[in-house]
Design a protein around this nucleic acid. Structure first.
Lengths: 240, 240
DNA sequence: CGCCATATTGAACACAATCAACGCGTGTGG
DNA sequence: CCACACGCGTTGATTGTGTTCAATATGGCG
């Protein structure tokens, strides 16, 4: 992780999303922000490292990887621009997961102790921070729900849906984007083999709810997001 | 949910666990606590209800049930004595899940706004609260990990392991306890059919890592917790 | 005692994993 | 410039774990 600068106040922060934009506005110059550039494959933090900072993803994408003592590992979360990271370290003083960049991006590090001090002076900041944690919790539960209740194709469909909606939430176009993960990574995240991901994608194309554009099979086009959502429902109902 | 009393200060609070005991100590009489008794099947809160309180489970067990718009539902969490509940409501002002008692128990309700005010005066309280949220986040990730990387029998074994360790954390005996959930509920929680739970349990008995005591098959005895953990590892390795 | 909910067990089936082959694009070296 | 290797993705064949359907216990409770 390459430190970029330690700036205070911040030079016109380009928005992540409205939530975080607001939160960072509240922070203002009370908490120094250290900016880092991360390249694909590099970690923002790793399991076991002492916890001291929370991070805001300013650009790029990252995955959260959880590893068990006996070596099993799994992508337990994905994060986009504007998302907060590192809450998992508060409990026991060290991080419990790896946060690994999937793409070149920029991360803003906020010293937790300092941030807490700032929270003591501004309720809105405190509640905003809680809301971010709350959001992280809720997202984890949604993952769990789809993992347990949806067949493979629907899980992939929902994955694409979520990705699209995240992009829209950032003000980017959600109907056409490039997946930043290999089939293997997607499969790990969704709890299935890479072959199943591939087959599911092909099925989605056959069902006309997505298309691949250009060369390579990572450029996804979603003609109609509602149609994709309908596919999820239908495929879920299949099983019952 | 039956209101029991609105007491301040609290009458010698029997401990949930050391963490929460400490946290509640910090709160002291700054935040009024409303105590409720919940019976099996009753909800502490339901999805969609406006969020105003956080809850501490003082006794009993409860499950968190997440439901999707299209009717799929799933047990996404279990909570024991001393656990905090309701964080999911902070983000959007209303709860995203149901919290349903599995057993008669007592829940302490703390008004979130008041709690936040108290946090503004005591950093330890604030950080302690964050630690509880952090813990909730971490537990969700562990669920995800075992759900995706473990075969059915190992998942059931880990479930029993977790349950035992939770009991030990509360100062209760972890080698012998009564499951408060039906096979169907366990199966829903672990992402498998009730038949698979039953078969897995039978397999665990055959492997001599658990036994059923007394009448009914909900009284579990774990002769050696390490042996049960070893079973998880072995069964996980099986697949690879 | 008999009913109902719950649990166990067996047999057939299905979905996804695994094993394997092939295609495609990219980058490298002869 | 072409040959080749390599990573990645797709697709087919086969296997296996877990689901589903069904029958049979078991226990709680009126």
């Amino acid at each position: 992780m390459v430190p970029l600068s330690l700036v205070r106040p911040l030079p016109a922060p380009p928005p992540g999303n409205s939530r975080t934009r607001g939160l960072l506005g509240l922070i203002g110059d009370q908490v120094p922000v250290r900016r880092h550039v991360v390249h694909a494959g590099e970690a923002v933090y790793r399991a076991g490292e002492p916890f001291a900072h929370l991070y805001v993803l300013h650009s790029g994408f990252l995955k959260i990887v959880s590893t068990s003592p006996d070596g099993r590992f799994h992508v337990v979360g994905l994060h986009f621009r504007g998302d907060w990271l590192g809450f998992d370290g508060i409990e026991c003083g060290h991080h419990g997961c790896d946060a690994v960049a999937l793409d070149t991006g920029e991360v803003w590090a906020l010293h937790y102790g300092t941030l807490v001090q700032a929270c003591m002076c501004d309720v809105r900041l405190l509640v905003g921070l809680h809301a971010e944690m709350s959001r992280a919790l809720g997202r984890g539960r949604e993952s769990l729900l789809s993992l347990c209740t949806l067949p493979a194709a629907a899980r992939v469909a929902e994955f694409l849906c979520d990705w699209a909606q995240s992009l829209v939430g950032q003000g980017q176009r959600g109907d056409q984007f490039v997946l930043r993960m290999s089939r293997a990574e997607i499969g790990n995240y969704l709890g299935m083999s890479l072959e199943s991901v591939s087959r599911s994608m092909s099925a989605l194309v056959r069902a006309r709810v997505i298309r691949f554009t250009g060369t390579g099979r990572r450029n996804v086009l979603i003609p109609d997001l509602d149609l994709l959502c309908a596919f999820i429902r239908d495929d879920a109902a299949q099983g019952s």
